[in-house]
Design a protein around this nucleic acid. Structure first.
Lengths: 346, 346
DNA sequence: CACATTCCTGGTAGCGGTTTCATGCGACGT
DNA sequence: ACGTCGCATGAAACCGCTACCAGGAATGTG
């Protein structure tokens, strides 16, 4: 077993005390001469402080936890990218704790993080109803929180949210400009704020253009799931061509892809016969043909921002009760096109 | 600041020493009576040992690191699922350290894990050429390794690999049975063993059926990237219909989707005009239409197995120089169908 | 009954950092 | 010349847990 050099050894070689070495490393008082001497010894011995010992001494865990549902996991790459970016940039070498992919509701893992590991912060990516209890428990345990969610009713932590309303409006404009007048919206669960806000934006955008969204063309699914998109496609297929929406906006990409997929299997052309819009810009959106027109959430940026708030909370001891909004970007691909049949205005 | 109960407090209430409490928790000698008394106190006080302190005392990090390239990140969900499954099942509450998504080659993060954090193990998901140096460094630092790779030439750690050859053969049979005789293979980088083995399997499978793979129908791409699939599609489009392959096997799903996408954009029917097969079964494979016929890697299982070897190495101190093979499962979806034009043999 | 063995238990010494505290020292002001 | 102050340093305590060791009790063995 190779001998691991520790701080005492460095101190001995540099002929100073452990305290001084520690101060040189962490930037306390030290004369230029001593600093140089210690630095040289550190370099020569290849010394690196052991993170675990340091964390233990400092009373912190040295890691954050990331919690997201299985169904949200398409974003994971982007979020992690943002988190990593932020964490490795800072000299503070905290690392991403880990993450739960919870099929059934499993709070125990997360709770063990706050009870046993005592993580320095938790990032929740789009917590739903079921996560409320965990968030609440974390709040009671005084763990710093960063919530990526449109829901401002969480009584704690930093909230990072996308501007769903503007995004909905942008979609409305985009579809209107393409000549669409019969438009449908397929939402997620009724209580999902994302879904509500996306609908709200779409509706106000259309109203501004004097287009009405027929109640019969607005449905809310039980959950954000591919099957819901497929189910709506079945419904669409049964509609009279003169009454079927020429454009369908679905509250997330998975549902949108399910919708598109089923139509294509029945030889319905997208966007020739119907235009499709999703939300979120998951990786698959570029892989399919036609590429899915969607609205990108700045997940990477939000992940980074979440880390930043947790880091400042950790360093400055202030629980940072903030709220940040991020714009969404409409990404026009090939799944939207001119409205079929009647002539396009202008 | 709420007082956190520590082991000393438990000891005081139970009128025993800290050592005894520790033993009760970790299963050392203790009389039944003492066990019960201590357990009761623990429950009453809601005591939970602080993981960081425990790890510090034990001289371990309490976490594994997961390393994978950005381009491989489509699997991340599955791998993480397997890892989590294994880690939370064991009472040993190690958690997934974190992971690198490396665009440009960035060894520093990983090396800091082994130098500073001194992780208890590293899982490499499909290390390429560029990862060799990191793997080597980790080996030198005596970190336990688990490598998900077909490459047996890594001189250390447990190797977990998929049976690419059999998978290739299965594809050969599948395509042959559908009547395909002109088949093409688009590999990844020439030095990629996955690619080589997949090709080998396909070729031997076809030879067994007396079908030859024309050299002109075998190409190797620079990298596993969607553009390579698109590029091959452009090539395919320029071929004379009587000479163009009726089925194309691409070494991963991303390339396959790129290929399919470009053809569809040109109104080439899949599988009517050409059948497409990929490898890996990434999430997008089910989301597109037609669903991509592909071969599933048991990533979840392999992730779990990787953890298991690391755990045993950690507990039993033996560096476990093993090698495990996992079968791949052919998933037939809609992107493969009967060969076009000439009649299909009975 | 002497002695060995096994089972329990408490005291204490780390693990490798950081942090308080006390002290030394030179510069500066009066 | 003498206090005061700010910077520089070292000694020692501490973070919470586990591991080692020694000693006592209980049990078995000849």
């Amino acid at each position: 077993m190779a001998h691991r050099t520790d701080i005492a050894e460095v101190a001995k070689h540099a002929k100073v005390s452990k305290s001084t070495v520690s101060r040189v490393i962490n930037g306390g008082y030290a004369s230029a001469e001593v600093k140089a001497r210690v630095a040289k010894v550190i370099a020569k011995l290849g010394y690196t402080p052991w993170t675990t010992a340091r964390n233990f001494s400092l009373g912190r865990a040295g890691c954050f936890g990331l919690v997201m549902e299985n169904s949200q996991s398409e974003w994971i790459t982007q979020i992690l990218g943002g988190i990593e970016e932020e964490l490795t940039a800072k000299h503070i070498s905290l690392l991403v704790g880990s993450l739960v992919l919870k099929g059934t509701y499993d709070a125990t893992t997360v709770l063990s993080w706050v009870r046993e590991r005592r993580v320095d912060g938790l990032i929740f990516a789009r917590p739903g109803r079921r996560e409320r209890a965990v968030v609440e428990a974390a709040r009671k345990a005084k763990v710093s929180l960063a919530l990526i969610t449109p829901d401002e009713s969480f009584k704690s932590g930093a909230v990072l949210r996308s501007n769903n309303v503007d995004a909905g409006r942008e979609i409305a404009d985009h579809l209107y400009d393409l000549g669409h007048r019969r438009i449908a919206f397929v939402g997620g669960p009724k209580e999902s704020l994302d879904s509500q806000q996306r609908f709200e934006g779409l509706e106000t955008g259309l109203i501004a253009r004097k287009v009405k969204l027929l109640p019969s063309n607005v449905v809310f699914a039980q959950r954000y799931h591919i099957e819901e998109g497929k189910a709506y496609a079945e419904k669409w297929l049964k509609m009279a061509p003169s009454r079927a929406p020429t454009a369908v906006v679905l509250a997330n990409d998975i549902m949108a892809l399910g919708f598109m997929r089923t139509l294509q299997a029945q030889n319905v052309g997208v966007p020739k016969d119907v235009s499709v819009v999703g939300f979120d810009d998951i990786p698959a959106a570029t892989l399919v043909w036609p590429g899915l027109t969607t609205v990108r959430q700045q997940m990477r940026t939000m992940g980074a921002a979440a880390c930043r708030t947790l880091l400042t909370a950790l360093l400055e001891e202030q629980p940072e009760r903030s709220s940040l909004e991020f714009p969404m970007d409409l990404i026009v691909r090939q799944s939207t096109g001119p409205a079929p049949s009647r002539s396009v205005g202008s």
